[in-house]
Amino acid sequence: MESGPAIFAGVAFGLFGAALLVWTGVRVAHRAPVAAGVSPTAAVALTALSGAASLALGLWCLSRV
């Protein structure tokens, strides 16, 4: 009963993190801006860090099941 919320949170964080990393990679590969009005280097670094942190949090939640 208590593992249901952990599974939901893990899947949600994992999907978001993976999607953010894929989206950032595609934008960088096409040399398109990742964020409007921000330095390209800072935008890529911040979104990649956020995506990796979200993916790691999702994996951590799923490991606690």
Rank of each mutant, 00 (worst) to 15 (best):
S63G: 15
L57W: 05
A19E: 06
F8D: 14
A36W: 09
F13W: 11
V38Q: 05
G14R: 02
F8W: 15
A48T: 14
L59Q: 06
W23A: 15
V65K: 04
R64K: 09
S50D: 05
G14T: 14
A35Q: 11
S39K: 09
S50G: 15
V44T: 04
H30D: 07
L49P: 01
L62M: 04
V34G: 04
A36H: 06
V65T: 10
V22F: 06
F16N: 08
V28N: 03
G4L: 15
S63L: 14
R31S: 14
P40S: 05
L46P: 01
A43F: 05
L21A: 08
V65N: 10
L62V: 04
V28H: 02
I7M: 12
W23N: 08
T47V: 03
A35G: 00
L15M: 15
G17P: 03
L15S: 12
S3T: 15
A56T: 12
V22D: 00
A42L: 14
E2P: 12
V22N: 01
A36Q: 11
L20K: 05
V65Y: 02
V11P: 04
G14Y: 03
L57S: 11
T47W: 03
S63C: 09
L59M: 11
V11Y: 05
F16R: 01
A35I: 13
P33T: 12
M1K: 15
G51P: 00
S63K: 11
A36M: 08
V26G: 02
P5F: 07
A35N: 00
A9K: 05
